[in-house]
Measured scan of single mutants.
Amino acid sequence: LKKGSQVEALFSYEATQPEDLEFQEGDIILVLSKVNEEWLEGECKGKVGIFPKVFVEDC
């Protein structure tokens, strides 16, 4: 996944840490960066945070 690409949430993700990005199933997320193999940083609904890659798929 490249910076600036968009992904769609397959499942809702509930934030458990302040840096987490919370979203609902079906939301479109703009990928800002790759944190590591399992986590991405993205923006959704004006909020920025990190989230697990397994919760999303390429649009």
Rank of each mutant, 00 (worst) to 15 (best):
E14P: 12
V7A: 03
S5Q: 08
Y13C: 07
L30K: 15
G4W: 01
V56P: 00
D20R: 05
V48G: 07
E14Q: 13
L30N: 15
G4Q: 00
E41K: 14
G26H: 07
L32G: 11
L21R: 03
D20L: 12
V48M: 00
G26N: 05
K47H: 03
E38I: 11
A15I: 08
A15W: 06
G42N: 06
E38Y: 09
Q24P: 02
G46C: 06
E57I: 02
F11D: 01
K2V: 08
V31M: 05
F11Y: 10
S12N: 10
G49A: 04
E25L: 02
L10Q: 00
I28R: 14
L30E: 13
V54Y: 12
C44R: 08
L32W: 01
L32S: 12
D20Y: 13
V48L: 02
F11K: 13
V54E: 11
F23D: 05
Q6M: 12
E43T: 10
V7S: 09
D58E: 13
V31Y: 06
S5H: 09
Q24S: 14
D58A: 14
I28G: 09
C59H: 08
E38P: 05
E37S: 05
Q24T: 09
K53Y: 02
Y13E: 05
C44M: 13
L1R: 13
S33C: 06
P18F: 03
L30S: 15
V35S: 06
V35Y: 03
E19N: 14
F55P: 11
P18S: 04
I28F: 06
D58R: 13
D58Q: 11
E19A: 10
G49L: 07
E57D: 09
E22W: 01
E38A: 08
W39V: 08
C59A: 13
Q6A: 02
F55L: 14
L32E: 09
K47C: 03
G42Q: 03
E43L: 06
F11Q: 02
V35F: 09
F23M: 11
Q17K: 15
E57S: 14
G4V: 06
F51R: 02
E37A: 07
G42L: 04
F11M: 11
I29Y: 04
D58H: 13
C44L: 08
F51Q: 00
L21S: 05
D27C: 08
S5T: 12
E25C: 09
E14S: 11
E8K: 15
L10I: 08
E57Q: 15
G42E: 09
W39H: 00
N36Q: 06
K47V: 08
W39A: 03
Q17C: 13
T16A: 06
C59S: 12
G4I: 15
K2C: 10
G26L: 08
K53I: 01
V35M: 11
V56N: 07
S12H: 06
V48H: 08
I50V: 09
P18E: 06
Q6R: 12
G49K: 12
E8H: 14
Q17L: 09
E14D: 12
A9D: 00
P52D: 06
F11L: 08
E25N: 12
V31T: 06
V35R: 09
V35L: 11
C44N: 00
N36H: 09
F23A: 08
Q6C: 08
K45R: 12
G49R: 02
E14V: 12
E19K: 02
V7P: 05
S33R: 15
E41I: 14
C44F: 02
E22I: 01
K45F: 03
E19L: 12
K2T: 15
S5F: 12
Q24V: 09
G4F: 08
Q6V: 15
Y13W: 06
N36T: 01
I50T: 05
G42V: 02
E41Q: 14
K34V: 15
E57C: 11
K45P: 00
E43M: 12
Q24K: 13
L10K: 04
F11N: 13
S12Q: 00
I28V: 09
K2G: 08
P52G: 10
F51G: 07
W39S: 03
K47L: 08
L1V: 09
L1A: 01
N36S: 04
F23L: 07
E43F: 08
E43A: 12
W39F: 06
P52M: 09
S5D: 15
K45E: 00
K45N: 14
V54S: 15
K53R: 14
V31E: 02
E41S: 09
L21M: 05
S5E: 13
K45L: 04
L1F: 15
L10W: 00
V7F: 07
V7L: 03
G26M: 11
F11V: 13
I50M: 03
E41D: 12
L1S: 10
T16H: 03
L10P: 05
I29Q: 01
T16G: 10
I29T: 05
D27I: 10
L32M: 05
I50L: 10
A15R: 07
F51E: 13
G49S: 05
V7M: 00
L10E: 03
K53S: 07
D27F: 05
S5M: 14
E22R: 07
E8V: 15
Q24R: 09
L1N: 12
Y13G: 10
I28L: 09
Y13P: 10
Y13T: 03
K45G: 04
V56D: 07
V35H: 01
D20H: 15
E19Q: 10
T16P: 01
Q24W: 11
V31G: 12
Y13I: 06
K3M: 12
E57W: 12
T16F: 04
N36C: 02
C44E: 01
E25D: 01
L21K: 02
A9M: 05
V56C: 05
A9C: 14
D27E: 00
E14L: 09
G46A: 08
L10G: 04
K34Q: 10
F55I: 04
D27T: 03
N36D: 06
V48S: 08
K2S: 08
L40T: 02
G46L: 10
G4Y: 01
N36P: 00
S5L: 09
L40W: 09
G46F: 03
L40E: 02
G49V: 00
G46E: 10
V56Q: 04
Q6L: 15
T16N: 08
I29P: 14
Q24M: 08
F51V: 08
P52E: 03
E19M: 06
I29L: 06
L1E: 13
E57A: 14
G42K: 02
I50F: 07
Q6I: 11
I50K: 13
L21Y: 02
K2R: 12
L10R: 13
C44G: 07
F51T: 10
E14G: 09
F51A: 03
V7Y: 14
K47N: 09
V35A: 12
V7E: 00
C59W: 15
K34G: 01
S12D: 11
E14M: 06
A9H: 06
K2W: 11
V35N: 05
E38N: 11
S33N: 13
P18N: 12
E22F: 05
L40N: 00
Y13A: 05
T16K: 15
P52C: 05
P52H: 11
N36Y: 02
L40M: 12
V54N: 12
W39N: 10
D58N: 11
G4L: 01
D20N: 02
C59G: 03
V56S: 08
C59M: 15
E41L: 14
E14W: 10
K53E: 08
G4R: 05
K34T: 15
G46Y: 08
P18M: 09
E41P: 06
F23C: 10
T16D: 07
G46I: 04
L1K: 05
Q6S: 03
E38T: 05
L30T: 15
D27L: 09
F11C: 15
G49F: 06
P18G: 04
V56A: 02
D20F: 11
Q17A: 14
G42H: 04
V56T: 06
D58V: 11
G42S: 03
C59E: 15
E41A: 07
K34C: 09
Q6K: 14
W39D: 04
V48E: 00
G46S: 00
G4P: 10
L30I: 13
E19R: 09
G46V: 04
K34P: 01
T16E: 07
D58F: 02
E37R: 10
S12M: 07
N36M: 07
P52R: 00
E8T: 13
L40S: 02
Q24I: 03
S12Y: 01
E43C: 03
